[in-house]
């Protein structure tokens, strides 16, 4: 049967720490061009699932497919090389460095010719131009690309972090609670930015506790409960209340309208996950 096209797909992901099973045969499906929200109660295994997708955790079993090709990430660097970039709640930027230095941190460009190869001179002009272009592409207005990040507001700082990952990600972007530390207005700025990242062609995985935020931007929602995905649904066909009910176990997942994802494979590997 035809499998729905996915950028990133996981089947039967399992990871346990001693006796604690953090993820238990979980599936994951991310389509091209969508914002997929991952929601779940504390302890549902969301963060372990995300770590497995970004290479921070190596699952005990299960398979990961990037553009339908099976991949194995042994470290975050592997995932990054494969084109997956992650934004975290905090910690993403260096406040004393300017915007351009932050966007190119760890990926600095040197000037062409002997000044670059012998003197290792950075091409600051090219990096500033690249940064200005990236910020403009995402509609982030800042006064100067040479501003240090500490002179920016919290929302703008997070915007720099988002611009940074969007600049380098070639496959998809994962955002782990990117607005948790922000106020309402700044949250809206970042949510708006997340939509622009998607509109510019990068699918986004958004981990969030904030249901209104999720329904504001996400196309689909992945509900995680007791270590596995219990539902995958369009945000347009599911209410927040129903999602919370499924998330907490108050309502069985099969009673809501779900998206179909290669059902036989899903059943098959879900059963195998614990083995």
């Amino acid at each position: 049967m035809s499998i729905e096209p996915t950028i990133l797909r996981a089947r039967g992901l399992t990871k346990s720490y001693g006796h604690v099973v953090a993820i238990d045969g979980s599936s994951f499906d991310l389509r091209p061009g969508e914002i997929l929200a991952v929601i779940g109660d504390n302890g549902a295994g969301k963060s372990t699932l995300i770590k497995a997708l970004t290479g921070a955790v190596v699952p005990d079993s299960g398979a990961l497919y990037l553009d339908d090709e099976q991949v194995t990430f042994h470290s975050p660097l592997d995932a990054r090389r494969a084109g997956i970039e992650t934004v975290y709640q905090e910690l993403g930027v260096a406040p004393a460095l300017d915007i351009s230095q932050n966007l190119y941190l760890g990926r600095e460009q040197r000037v062409p010719g002997w000044r670059g190869t012998v003197l290792r001179q950075l091409d600051k002009k090219a990096m500033r131009e690249g940064s200005a272009r990236q910020m403009a592409d995402l509609g982030i207005r800042i006064q100067s690309i040479r501003q240090t990040v500490e002179t920016l507001s919290g929302g703008q700082r997070q915007a720099v972090a988002v611009a940074r990952v969007a600049a380098w990600a070639t496959r998809l972007v994962i955002m782990d609670e990117p607005t948790a530390a922000l106020g309402v207005r700044e949250t809206n700025q970042v949510l708006d930015l997340i939509q622009r990242v998607r509109d510019n062609g990068l699918p986004v995985v958004l981990i969030s506790h904030n249901m209104p935020n999720v329904w504001q931007v996400a196309d689909r929602v992945h509900i995680h409960r007791l270590g596995r995905r219990v539902a995958l649904a369009d945000t347009s066909s599911l209410t927040m209340d129903d999602a919370v009910a499924v998330m907490t176990g108050a309502r069985p997942a099969h009673t809501i309208e779900q998206v179909e994802t290669a059902p036989d494979e899903w059943e098959h590997t879900a059963g195998e996950g614990a083995a």
């Binding site: 992650t86 975290y88 910690l91 993403g92 930027v93 004393a96 460095l97 760890g106 003197l119």
Partner: peptide
């Protein structure tokens, strides 16, 4: 003017961010 220099500042400024980069 060099990447190493920028990284020295980044490491002193915010080590977790430097590591994530």
């Amino acid at each position: 003017q060099t990447a190493w220099g920028v990284r020295v500042y980044a490491v002193g400024d915010n080590p977790p961010a430097a590591r994530l980069a």
